[in-house]
């Protein structure tokens, strides 16, 4: 057994924490804010007491939308738009595939997606060296 994730985990019928509805309400308000002021919101799901069942329920309620992005930087990250445009499900994992962050982001596109100017600069320099 080399990784924690290799241990088979069966979901017991864990009780719900009743945090699902308030959370969906928060997403609703954040979406409204995005429309009216352009302000983006990030919700750290690991800072709220949620059972695995809650997480599954929230995921179910939001559904899977049109866009799926995988990023490989310090381990894989999965970024999926939900069925509600502008509401993204974001999961970061480390190089052992262990979860390091789980967020709902309410934004046109999560910050981590677009290429950063510093990396573009770095890429240009590498290309220059190769072509010159």
């Amino acid at each position: 057994m080399s990784h924690l994730t290799d241990i088979p985990v069966a979901l017991e019928n864990l009780p719900s924490t009743h945090n699902v509805t308030p959370l969906l309400n928060e997403v609703r308000h954040a979406l409204q804010a995005l429309l009216t002021t352009g302000e983006a919101t990030q919700i750290d799901l690991r800072s709220i007491p949620l059972s695995d069942r809650d997480v599954a329920q929230i995921q179910d309620a939001l559904g899977v939308g049109e866009v799926e992005i995988q990023i490989n930087a310090l381990g894989p990250s999965m970024i999926k738009e939900t069925t509600f445009a502008g509401v993204w499900w974001v999961e970061h994992r480390n190089s052992s595939n262990e979860l390091t962050g789980r967020y709902i982001e309410i934004t046109p596109v999560p910050d981590i997606v677009p290429s950063a100017m510093s990396d573009i600069q770095d890429g240009l320099e590498r290309l220059n060296r190769r072509v010159e």
Binding site: Q42, D44, S47, A73, T100, D111, A116
Partner: peptide, 25 residues
């Protein structure tokens, strides 16, 4: 050799580690 995306991910994990909201990233 860590890219800006990697750095942002690192900062997100750090915020979470410090129990600070994502807006502090």
């Amino acid at each position: 050799g860590i890219s800006r995306r990697g750095f942002l991910k690192f900062c997100a994990a750090t915020a979470s580690m410090m129990a600070l909201p994502p807006s502090s990233i």
